[in-house]
Design a protein around this nucleic acid. Structure first.
Lengths: 194, 194
DNA sequence: ACAGATACCAAGCAAGTGCTTGGTAGGTTA
DNA sequence: TAACCTACCAAGCACTTGCTTGGTATCTGT
């Protein structure tokens, strides 16, 4: 595979990612992607097996990159609360650096995970749940978090509140992912009451 | 319009609402709706002008009901913090009682608001933003909320974190909307730190 | 008994969907 | 220079989409 091929493929995949993120997977046609790339829809099939294969490649590589970071944090030598903070920071970094992929995951994972090909998405969800609820429970045990927390309920809030930020966060805007993560953690840990 | 007509229409609209909520507006076909109702797709057009008219009716009536409550809270005689709590409670009640409509709004509002017919959705969003940011600013002024809050950032967190609960909350499950709202407010106001 | 309304069916159309096929121009390698 | 490869085009196929048309069975009020 030559370098030019790699480049063109990556270019097309990037165009597709942005369209999928904007309009959703099902609402984006192969003609939309081809138009944005300045070619005909049939020509896409020289580079990719199918429309599904495109989104699969996007989600799979993003998930692998994300979980490398999560695994490193989980295995590191920190307190539960510090790990929680690190995971939040890593997640906002992902929203910043893999914005389209996160948006696609948020919008279309439920729909896609119904297909065999995307079964790994559900497995990832389970791992994510185990990671968060484990950290929360450890934090309570270590006395870093309040003992009266409903861990399952808090987990759902955390999971959704972190990832839903992809809907309004714009990479390259006023706020860095670090700033957003810090503000978020401040609210989450200390509350907004005076 | 006889009572039977009203009933059948409402029945069909309810079936459509559940399908739209589950799979999204664009991913639900008129044949899906008709199948679920046990009729042919063409027969739907005896009751409704179009697929768009169905979702329009659902979203419009839901939004009107919700804003009646919001307006009453805003006009009531309470402190900003109490109003904030009341609005959160009203929102979780809406998730409980108008589950499908909230889910449709969450999933498809961005797509639908691109059409002239659904321009009112954007106007509602502006009003919602004004309501929340106003309450937050009043709360800071009144000394009920921390003075160092980035109101715009906190607003985005609140808006999304409340409504995203529709993804996991199930009406008739273990938790009442009041319980969820109380837990949520506890986390939001006091934080999870020990 | 009959006129109208209601709720539906049977058939199908035009537009749009993902994808396939057979081909070509231009570059690279042997 | 011949063989091959990359990136694309032009045309179209099989299918799905929202919606339309003309008709029928059943009920209700007069």
């Amino acid at each position: 595979m030559t370098e030019a091929t790699q480049t063109r493929r990556a270019e097309l995949l990037d165009i597709a990612a942005k369209l999928f993120a904007e309009r959703g997977f099902k609402n984006t046609t192969v003609r939309d992607i081809a138009d944005a790339a300045g070619i005909l829809s049939g020509s896409l099939y020289h580079h990719f097996d199918s429309k599904e294969a495109m989104v699969d490649e996007l989600l799979d590589s993003f998930q692998n990159a994300l979980w490398e970071e999560y695994d490193a944090i989980e295995a590191s030598d920190r307190t539960p609360k510090e790990k929680l903070e690190a995971v939040v920071h890593a997640s906002f970094d992902a929203i910043d650096q893999h914005h389209s992929e996160v948006a696609i995951f948020q919008t279309d994972a439920a729909y896609l995970s119904g297909f065999d090909r995307f079964a790994y998405l559900q497995e990832r969800n389970v791992r994510f749940r185990d990671l968060w609820t484990g950290l929360l429970r450890d934090g309570v045990t270590a006395g870093e978090l309040r003992a009266d927390l409903d861990v399952e309920l808090v987990y759902r809030f955390l999971r959704d509140t972190v990832w839903v930020a992809v809907r309004w966060y714009r990479p390259g805007g006023d706020l860095t992912p670090t700033q957003v993560a810090d503000q978020y953690l401040h609210i989450l840990l200390e509350g907004i009451s005076q």
